[in-house]
Amino acid sequence: MLLLDLLLMLLIAYGFGFLYYGLYRNLSARVHGRFGPSLAQSFSDSIKLFVKEESTTFGWMFYLGPVIMASGAVLNVLFIPFLNQGESLQGLSSYGNLIVVLYLMVLGPLGNALGVGSSGNPFGVMGVTRGLTRLLALELPFYLAAIGVMIDAGSADFGIIMQAQSTQSNMFAHPLLFAAAFISFLGFMGKSPFDVVGAPQEVYSGPATEFSGKFLALLMSQSAMFSFAKLLLMVNLFWGGADHLGELVAKTFVLFVAATFIGSVYARFSTVQSVEFLIRIPTLLGIVGLALL
């Protein structure tokens, strides 16, 4: 039964991940005055890449990098509960908690960074360096918000955190913490202005530079699932989770559209600008939010 539940969770994350990926390309194209590709374009791209005849590799670590990254994404999906009640779609969330998930989110990218580094391509490692430098400031506001949420609920357990929001969601109870976390969330989703990591015009797509064929297909698939996991995390922490699948889809969709629109209209920050902005504005919001707890 648990196995079926886990598979269903992965399937939902995979399906909605790709749907949102397609929607993102569509919506941002409309904002930019273009038509954009069809909804299923990203999904068919990934399948096409997966069946390509040849994929370049630089050795075993390069081969394992995307596998570790994708395993990290799978774990994120499985350790965050989809619903705030009942026994279905809870996955392995009772075996972990918010702190575990916060660290699992970095595990995949760090594993992939090993693969990127082993290719010997300087653009790849430039992207990784940008990512890790940005990360040090990106995580801080999110951590502050998460700390506030945990202290408020008296636990790091997802079930208790969602239960604590049964009367009022954290978004309204702690708006400053939500604002801090949302700005970080934009960065986690790779949205502008915090998308300096894979900037194609500067670092040649950064960490993804050398990956092709099935490796790129795996990276695209995990990215879709990972994005869904991040949406899920925000919904659980600040919007009280979801009672049923319909509510989950509605909530993640609203959050996703908000992030996409904001990402479509902003220009890209440089690494230094990202760090300085993130340390100044959202961190300050987070600190004030914690002081008001």
Binding site: F50, E53, E54, S55, Y63, V67, K214, F215
Partner: peptide
């Protein structure tokens, strides 16, 4: 996932 990559039609060069 490693098995999936190994089983893929695409060969790693």
């Amino acid at each position: 996932l490693l098995g999936l990559l190994q089983l893929a039609h695409s060969k790693a060069k």
